[in-house]
Simulated assay, not measured.
Amino acid sequence: MANSKGDPRVLFLMNLVLSAAFATLVVWGLSRVGLLAFAWQTVAFAAGVLMVLTYLVVQ
């Protein structure tokens, strides 16, 4: 069990949900301080970038 990498579909879904939540929080926070306008397209882009970075770091 310790050597198992897990089901890739579950890992992808976890990465998607956590990246989207973190991206939403970051974009919302930046919009509150006036550095960025909140838009769902911005959240989606940030989540995509986070997903790619997470994938590259754990590989």
Rank of each mutant, 00 (worst) to 15 (best):
M1T: 11
M1N: 14
M1Y: 11
A2M: 12
A2W: 13
A2C: 08
A2Y: 11
N3R: 12
S4N: 15
K5P: 05
G6Q: 04
G6R: 03
D7L: 06
D7G: 04
D7H: 09
P8G: 04
P8W: 05
P8T: 04
R9L: 15
R9I: 10
V10W: 06
V10M: 09
V10N: 07
L11N: 11
L11S: 12
L11Q: 12
F12C: 06
F12Y: 13
L13T: 11
N15P: 02
N15Q: 08
L16A: 15
L16V: 12
L16D: 04
L16R: 10
L16T: 13
L16E: 09
L16G: 03
L18E: 13
L18W: 08
A20V: 08
F22K: 09
F22W: 14
A23Q: 00
A23I: 02
L25S: 14
L25N: 06
V26T: 08
V26P: 00
V27I: 13
V27G: 00
V27W: 00
W28E: 12
W28Q: 12
G29F: 03
L30N: 07
S31H: 05
R32E: 10
V33M: 12
V33Q: 10
V33F: 13
V33N: 06
G34W: 03
G34F: 01
G34L: 03
L35G: 10
L35W: 15
L36Y: 06
L36V: 07
A39G: 11
A39V: 05
A39S: 15
W40E: 09
Q41S: 12
Q41M: 07
Q41K: 08
T42C: 05
T42M: 05
T42F: 02
T42D: 05
V43C: 01
A44L: 14
A44N: 05
F45V: 10
F45S: 08
A46V: 09
A46Q: 03
A46R: 00
A46M: 06
A47F: 03
A47C: 06
A47R: 00
G48P: 02
G48Q: 02
V49M: 13
V49S: 05
V49Q: 07
L50S: 11
L50D: 02
L50C: 07
L50A: 10
M51I: 05
M51Q: 11
M51G: 03
M51K: 04
V52T: 09
L53P: 01
L53Y: 07
L53G: 12
T54P: 02
T54L: 06
T54R: 10
Y55V: 06
Y55E: 09
Y55S: 10
Y55L: 08
Y55P: 01
L56D: 07
L56G: 09
V57F: 10
V57G: 04
V57R: 09
Q59A: 11
Q59H: 11
Q59K: 14
